[in-house]
Design a protein around this nucleic acid. Structure first.
Lengths: 148, 148
DNA sequence: TTGCGTGCAAAGGTTTTGCATGGCA
DNA sequence: TGCCATGCAAAACCTTTGCACGCAA
């Protein structure tokens, strides 16, 4: 984190560009790898992991580990946006990820810090539950797959 | 649940007993496997996974996937307790898991349901952040601890 | 030139699966 | 007896690591 943060390489550019161009979606290393390969600018898996690790440390990218078999999901984080007010809701049935922009959560965050001495990290915290569509009793999906 | 849920076997009893006796801590499959082996009642890894999977579906056990390398953590859930008001705070630095009993969170839960149409599942939701001890640069709490 | 960045492959880990056997009902 | 449960091992998966080479600075 001190000063210069690495060389400017083709691989780094490709990864960073991909992340910025997909800032609203959650992607896996596999997704990135496949995409870059199709674009004619393939990047080794290990390299992707190494870059993503640094980006997570910097706070440029946030990381979710939903499942060990599925692998980790990464999402680009804009420095300009108020990402500390930006939480996520993840539906346990359809796997959909919903962006939650809500001042109420911000209040809770302050409450937990003031009363419980715990500084919540919105970048990592995910609310699990059931979304509106999946809650409809007409279609009680029991065992759905986990997509992104 | 759908009627009879499997045979009553020694392995099943061992796993269930272990989970109920460790309801306050978070254990991995490896932990369970080692413990049962030491107790003289070894159970195959695959069997543990298969049982745990069913227990998670039933809601008897909750599952956390912190890291792909570390593996999933499982915790027994008591049906009697008001677990729907019981959230968890997990420190990203020392790994400590804190139980949060707070009416404010309950309010947020209702707000999200009413305003955003999303039914939060407290059994699965974990707030990530930094605990009081680790926030002080002088004395960080012990590492790698996963009880709670 | 210096030393980080990269890719390949192997190693490490957790989790799943196939199949023959064992045991509950 | 019928069929689920079990265990073993292999497979599948994501992720990390070692090493030789390439390339930015």
């Amino acid at each position: 984190m001190s000063g210069t943060n690495g060389y400017k390489t083709r691989q780094r550019e490709s990864i960073l560009r991909y992340m910025t161009e997909h800032k609203d979606s959650h992607v896996t290393v596999n997704t990135i790898s496949d995409y870059l390969a199709q674009q004619g600018t393939p990047v080794g898996t290990a390299t992707i992991y190494r870059h993503l690790e640094k980006l997570v440390e910097q706070g440029t990218v946030r990381k979710y580990t939903v499942d060990a078999a599925t692998g980790a999901c990464f999402q680009f984080v804009e420095a300009d946006r108020k990402c500390h007010e930006h939480y996520h809701l993840k539906c346990e049935k359809c796997g959909k990820l919903i962006h939650l922009k809500c001042s109420f959560v911000k209040e809770l965050e302050e409450h937990i810090y003031a009363e419980h001495g715990f500084a919540v990290n919105p970048l990592r915290t995910v609310f699990y539950g059931v979304c509106q569509e999946c809650a409809v009793p007409a279609a009680p999906a029991q065992k759905e797959e986990q997509n992104g």
